[in-house]
C-alpha cells in the first residue's frame, strides 16, 4: 500500500485535479453511455408494446395472412 493516507491518495502528489479530472470524466462517459443504451432500449420496447397493443388485431392478420 504505497499511499500514506487517504488524503495523500486523493491529492495524488499534487496532480490530483488532473488525475481525478480525467478519471471522473471517464466514469461519467462510460456510465452515460450505458444509461443511453438502456434508455434507448427501454423507450423502444415501450414504443413497440404501444404499437403491439393498438394494432394487436391488425398484427394478428398480418402474421396469419
Amino acid at each position: 500500500m504505497i499511499w500514506a493516507s487517504w488524503s495523500d491518495f486523493f491529492s495524488m502528489g499534487g496532480y490530483g485535479f488532473y488525475v481525478w479530472g480525467s478519471y471522473l470524466v471517464s466514469v461519467a462517459c462510460i456510465a452515460g453511455e450505458i444509461a443511453l443504451v438502456f434508455n434507448r432500449k427501454r423507450t423502444l420496447l415501450k414504443h413497440l408494446s404501444l404499437i403491439h397493443e393498438s394494432t394487436k388485431q391488425e398484427k394478428r392478420n398480418e402474421t396469419t395472412s
Partner: peptide
C-alpha cells in the same frame, strides 16, 4: 512525472 502518469491507465 510523479503521480500524473497514472492517467496513462485510461488514456
Amino acid at each position: 512525472q510523479g503521480e500524473a502518469y497514472r492517467i496513462i491507465f485510461i488514456h
